[in-house]
Design a protein around this nucleic acid. Structure first.
Lengths: 239, 239
DNA sequence: ATTCGTGAGCTTGCATGGAAGACGGCATGC
DNA sequence: GCATGCCGTCTTCCATGCAAGCTCACGAAT
């Protein structure tokens, strides 16, 4: 219990834009997260730490530690003595996620609109992204659209000044990434998205926090209301 | 890559009310979390895994793994090759946390008010807690008041039906618990809290989702606006 | 035919040791 | 006096080994 030295009292990881030191744990973490996101490990997939360790060319230890982090983020479960399991999402889970994101992005937009210093650089980015999305739509390039959409929402939460909010949103978006990609091509041409993005951007520019928040939240709720019936219809129990 | 068997596709930890199996990692996790919450490990405290392992009577491994989880939750930082550090919170961090909680509890109240099946059992609890809080106030029992306050907010998010929301709120509330306890006795008698809790409860009972959400959010914002100047005044750089 | 017990082969939990990095004090050079 | 480079010590990182628990197939008993 010897608190050594009166070292600098460093804050939580919030602020620090620490470029994680390279380590096997970090490698394993990234590799497995990517594998889950890209459906290399499909939901319901069961594997063992040993198997993954061999594939990544390391021992079980770093894999095990990376799995703890992934479990904490809700992407996998480690079943004691039984192996690891990639989590599947039910429609109810998707609803939870959308409700959460809608509200949090609403707050993000609100914070952004209410802070002059914050919104100036953010708007620059958002405007550029909106242009890209318009281009993608004109060219019927769904992948480019999805990428622009992703970037828009990412910038929104990353630049709102609340790092914990950003982290929370990222966590649940990681969980739902797979499902999102899966349903991307099942929906009608997403023309409304651009309109709504522009409206949110505009409200932020005007500094109308309440309106920006309301619009951003409604935007996600629309997406939710479009997605949920689709999932139910397809009888998707899990994905 | 042999996905073994067509085993049951289990969902994310969301639903499962799994009573964590007893394990050294779990013990270490709880012990250290409690130690941080109760200021046994004050912010800025530096220690080593070895030291903690000895104190807990186990090897370094479970301590290390528990630390990974605590780091993921933002309570500590593991500095590579240097030791562990208990995170301190700045006023800016407290603001982040309150903004986040305000919004999330707003959503929780909204969800609760909008769902008949959910709100019935919840209201039973909330009513009881409100009675306890009234008693505590009448007796000037600050500790009892704090406990009732905590329970109220806990029930709110745990019974709203969105497990991810609950988890997110718990995570940031754990982070801010220390600061909250510290400032508990610096504030005026919290008579407004009860009134606001009653108002939120009433709105939920009426099924007025919008009002419930607005009130719950405003309640936390009031607390924030009361707390922030206090922190600044005391010149608290970190806590 | 069906049930139940048993054991082999998985799995992770945890302990431990060696390796490499980070820090701080001390000697050295100016 | 002051800066600088070196080295001992402390720390985590990672590999590995053993132990214990879980699953499932197989065989015996009913």
């Amino acid at each position: 219990m010897t608190a050594r030295g009166t070292g600098l009292i460093v804050g939580p990881p919030s602020e620090a834009i620490e470029a994680k030191a390279p380590s096997l744990v970090e490698d394993a973490y990234r590799a497995m997260k990517t594998a889950v996101r890209d459906n290399v490990f499909p939901p319901g997939y069961q594997g063992s730490e040993q198997e993954i360790a061999i594939r990544l060319g390391m021992s079980r230890t770093p894999v095990h530690e990376a799995l703890i982090r992934l479990q904490e983020e809700g992407l996998v479960r480690v079943l004691p003595k039984r192996g690891i399991l990639v989590c599947a999402l039910s429609p109810a889970d998707m609803r939870e996620i959308y409700d959460l994101i809608a509200t949090l992005e609403g707050l993000a937009a609100e914070l952004l609109a209410g802070d002059e210093a914050l919104r100036r650089p953010a708007l620059e980015r958002l405007d550029a992204i909106n242009v890209d999305m318009r281009t993608a739509l004109d060219q019927d390039d769904l992948d480019a659209w999805a990428q622009a959409d992703d970037r828009f929402h990412r910038e929104l939460v990353e630049r709102c000044g609340n790092s914990r909010l950003a982290r929370a949103v990222h966590t649940v978006m990681d969980q739902s990434h797979r499902a999102r990609m899966l349903t991307l091509r099942l929906r009608a041409k997403p023309v409304r998205s651009l309109k709504e993005h522009l409206a949110v951007t505009s409200a932020i520019r005007k500094g109308d926090a309440v309106k920006a928040g309301t619009l951003a939240r409604a935007h996600r709720q629309h997406a939710r209301d479009e997605l949920m019936p689709l999932l139910e219809t397809l009888g998707m129990r899990h994905l």
